[in-house]
Design a protein around this nucleic acid. Structure first.
Lengths: 151, 151
DNA sequence: ATAAAATGTTACACTTTCCGTAACAATTAA
DNA sequence: TTAATTGTTACGGAAAGTGTAACATTTTAT
């Protein structure tokens, strides 16, 4: 799945969980609501769970619930949770010679250059909260800290 | 070819053309020097030619030459020449219903959001000239306006 | 004129990656 | 005990990427 699709799917799922808080929602519930495949959704959601954005419970009436206030979740955090790759990924030619040939030097330089751009993107994404997204989409969050079950 | 690979390959080619200015270099010369495939290189270079960064001539002793001072070529310009896609491309789920369903509204919003990020990236890339790249890589440019053949 | 060399473009087979689905062990609650 | 759910892996078809080849067109040298 492309990085941006992972991100947009994750955001949709988080919005849905915020909307239906504090009821746990199964991957099937979520996929019925936001589209996509339940199994692939679980892959995304398990990554969000590892990063403390949602929590999961198994068994009957299990599912996923939000564990963080939408105002405190930012796009960058969601992106990093579901995608290893940098947003502005550099795909360079592989060097065929030794480690200090011209191609390698060029690639090293380019990696630095792209790292700068990457920082810009991450800073920008850090400024966008899930709450602001929900506001724009007129989705009402029912999230409430006190209702989040402890670990 | 991935967008970033097109970009880095293009930059390498431009550096080589600046270095060997004003001698036209064939796609074969360039691929021998910077690696990659001559045919694929021609595809990139023909796009750079359409955007006025290089010019091409056919026939014996033909090839590509730089037509713009490295200090006046910027990464953003090179990127746009060889890649239609935005740098931070959004790959959204396709809507299956009518044009005003929830998925569509969500996607429209996301496109706006990513457009903002896109502007940041382009601004950042606009600040990086080919000349500065060549300086960092200690490549000497031999580019000289007066030696560029007229149309 | 002719031949040689180069671009610009298209096509193609091969490989890699993507994607939806299925499967199943582990876990949990009724 | 049973049913429902997560978490993870596997897989086959679809899509996209990659390197190469082919060839008409253009241009220059002889």
């Amino acid at each position: 799945m492309s990085a941006s699709k992972k991100l947009s799917t994750s955001v949709k799922a988080i919005c849905y969980l915020a909307e239906s808080f504090p009821n746990p929602k199964s991957s099937k519930d979520i996929s019925d609501n936001i589209g996509g495949n339940a199994s692939k959704l679980r892959q995304l959601l398990s990554m969000l769970a590892k990063n403390g954005i949602v929590s999961s419970s198994q068994g009957i009436n299990g599912g996923f619930i939000l564990t963080k206030h939408p105002g405190k979740i930012h796009l960058q955090e969601v992106y990093c949770s579901v995608e290893d790759r940098k947003a502005f990924h550099l795909d360079v030619n592989h060097s065929h010679g030794d480690s200090k040939d011209r191609t390698s030097i060029f690639n090293d330089y380019f990696l630095d250059l792209f790292a700068d751009v990457q920082v810009e993107i991450e800073d920008k994404m850090r400024l966008i909260s899930l709450q602001s997204i929900m506001n724009n989409l007129k989705i009402k969050s029912k999230y409430n800290d006190r209702l989040v079950p402890k670990e």
